[in-house]
């Protein structure tokens, strides 16, 4: 499909050298300690985690599935990509709580939120799952790259699977997370450039924005330009009930940890930010740029559809974005385009290699096998496990080449089945380790029942995914709610330490009152005597630790801004009515959020950073099973 000239090859090689060399350059920083190799020393300004969130989110198969949903559904297909919007509320809620926990991984967080044997088993459970899951994701995106290289160059599939991943492993192994974020930053810039360029070239080739619209109207399918082209309340391809379920999963999911499969990746980015404020802005900006990316893609793909509206086979039309790039770009720019495809691929591979190695090194090797290991030894284990993950992913990729789509459905089941426990663990003090573990166990059994056993015996019809979600949620709750209530709450000392450190949102009344009684936190002013400005602009540390109306303004506005950005960008590029207003509204909304929340985030960060060194020391004592020196 691609017509490469010498100039194209030179451009592609130049990009590759820049991206790999730029990342490798940081290897001296990475070898200093475990904290450097996996969190860049917890010192990154917000724009580095933000670019890493965006770059990791963008994999080689992402333009395929985004093209697939837009080609099949028109503009409303953008809502299928809106699951990323968990970052809208997540940035202001779960990111703040997780960053204050200082946990390297979600598995480590489990042992801070919960205590005793139950929490320890949860940590091992999640660590084993995540080591496996990262190998699975590496195999999945590796195979996608194999298919793209087969399409572009006619290479055998295994070449595209092995070669780019091995190049990525070279700098990820040497420079750890420093290499990952610096590489992601360079790769993110290249990827954005290519996505914007190819979309604009695509729209231009279809006769400009007016041409795209006229072609779509001419074939009588103007519903494709409507983001709310519902097919009914419950019937058809795009019912209202699907849309509402999607909004609940993604938007409300921002109150939890693990409600999206991306959480585990983003948690590492959150923890690498130098302050709570940087963690919040990093996740928010990463999510926003990802949705803007989808808006650009959708415009290009609608243009592709308007030129070739009759491709019946999904495997063919999913390559629409790649075809726009390879077939419409002039000599030289095709090389840049392939450089961008490499960038998109490398950034995803590097992140998952480092994340899988982190779970193995921190939660399995250091916690369970060698608690007394030196920093040098831990970095060495990080490098070896990076290499083992790489080799494992090759086997996995080749094994699942034909069934990837089905296994992605398994990811959905695991996300859907524990969506509610993942929120409850953050917002409800009474939820305990046994309840959460029961939620996970129940998910396996309930998924077998709902997806296969009951339909096979004709007891239950095969349900669409969005109804399956509610059934999985309800049946899971039948198991984990009684388990929670029939077992004891976590010990108050454990809850107090976690509460004072992270100040979680939600129903934490008994723990809050006990913390006040013991003098661990100051009593907050009673509501009735309180007089305060509508929007508080100056904060004491005690005031900033409470959840207040300023947080809720950010929480409510943020998803609205995300939706307006995503839909607005596509409409603006196609000169559709309302596009400009949606984008302007999103920019204004972003300004309001910043104005309202920034003083508070600065106060939270300033106060917390003063205590962070002591907290980190306690964290490192705990991971080595040592008693802590005082509180």
């Amino acid at each position: 499909m691609a017509n490469f000239t010498i100039l194209d090859v030179l451009w592609a090689v130049a990009f590759l050298l820049l991206m790999v060399g730029g990342a490798f350059f940081f290897y001296r920083l990475a070898r200093r300690s475990e904290s450097d190799f996996f969190l860049a020393g917890r010192g990154l300004p917000w724009w580095l985690p933000a670019s890493s969130v965006f770059s990791t989110h963008t994999a080689t198969d992402t333009p395929m599935w985004v093209t697939g949903v837009i080609y099949a559904n028109g503009l409303r297909g953008l809502w299928y990509t809106f699951f990323t919007a968990w970052t809208a509320i997540g940035a202001f809620v779960s990111a703040r709580i997780f960053r204050r926990s200082l946990a390297y991984t979600q598995a480590e967080w489990q042992t801070q939120r919960f205590g005793g044997l139950g929490a320890e088993m949860l940590r091992g459970w999640m660590a084993g799952w995540q080591v496996f899951m990262n190998m699975f994701i590496l195999g999945w995106v590796g195979i996608a790259m194999g298919k793209v290289c087969a399409l572009a160059f006619g290479w055998p599939i295994w070449v595209g699977l092995v070669l780019p991943s091995a190049i990525t492993a070279f700098y990820t192994l040497a420079a750890g997370y420093w290499g990952v974020v610096m590489g992601d930053f360079l790769q993110g810039i290249v990827a954005i450039f290519a996505i914007v360029l190819v979309s604009l070239v695509g729209v231009s080739a279809a006769g400009g924005p007016i041409g795209v619209t006229e072609r779509i109207v001419a074939i009588g399918e103007q519903w494709r330009l409507d983001a709310f082209a519902f097919t009914g309340w419950v019937d058809g391809d795009f019912p209202v009930v699907w849309w509402l379920t999607m909004l609940v999963i993604s938007v409300i999911g921002g109150f939890g940890m693990g409600t999206s499969i991306d959480w585990y990746v983003e948690a590492q980015r959150i923890q690498s930010a130098k302050t709570v404020r940087d963690a919040t802005y990093g996740l928010w900006a990463g999510g926003a740029v990802t949705l803007i990316r989808n808006g650009f893609w959708a415009a290009g793909i609608l243009a592709f559809f308007s030129m070739l509206p009759n491709i019946a086979d999904a495997a063919d039309y999913e390559l629409g974005w790649f075809r726009l790039g390879f077939e419409l770009l002039p000599t030289g720019l095709i090389g840049v385009f392939f450089g961008a495809i490499l960038a998109i691929h490398l950034s995803t591979i590097s992140s998952h290699l480092n994340l899988g190695a982190l779970y193995f090194t921190r939660d399995i090797y250091q916690r369970y096998l060698k608690p007394e290991a030196s920093e040098r030894r831990l970095v060495w284990v990080g490098r070896v496990s990076t290499f083992v993950l790489l080799i494992g992913s090759f086997f996995y990729g080749l094994m699942m080449e034909e069934i990837t789509r089905w296994l992605i459905f398994a990811l959905w089941l695991m996300m859907a089945g524990i969506w509610l426990p993942n929120i409850l663990q953050v917002v409800w003090w009474r939820f305990n380790a046994w309840g959460y573990l029961a939620g996970w166990m129940a998910n396996l059994g309930v998924s077998w029942l709902v997806v296969w056993v009951l339909p096979a015996f004709g007891v239950l019809p095969k349900l669409p995914d969005h109804l399956q979600f509610w059934l999985l949620l309800a049946l899971g709750a039948v198991v984990f709610v009684p388990v929670t209530l029939f077992t004891k709450p976590e010990k108050m000392d454990q809850l107090l330490r976690y509460y004072v450190m992270t100040r979680p949102i939600g129903w934490w009344g008994p723990v809050h009152r006990e913390a006040v009684r013991r003098g661990l936190i100051e009593k907050t002013a009673a509501k009735s005597t309180e007089s305060r400005p509508v929007i508080r602009r100056t904060w004491t540390p005690q005031q900033a630790d409470e959840w207040t109306r300023e947080d809720w303004i950010a929480v409510i506005l943020s998803p609205l801004v995300f939706a307006a950005l995503m839909i607005g960008v596509t409409k603006l590029l196609l000169l559709q009515p309302g596009g400009l207003w949606l984008v302007l509204g999103a920019v204004l909304g972003t300004g309001v959020i910043y104005w309202v929340i920034d003083p508070k985030l600065r106060a939270v960060s300033g106060e917390y950073e003063a205590q962070q060194a002591r907290y980190v020391e306690q964290l490192e004592q705990r991971v080595r099973w040592q008693k802590e020196g005082g509180r």
């Binding site: 320890e120 088993m121 091992g124 084993g128 799952w129 399995i364 369970y368 099973w625 008693k627």
Partner: peptide, 15 residues
């Protein structure tokens, strides 16, 4: 299906 859990139980060291 994590059943890491066994390793955690074995490791679980009156900490």
């Amino acid at each position: 299906y994590s059943f890491g859990l066994g390793l955690a139980w074995w490791s679980w060291h009156g900490p």
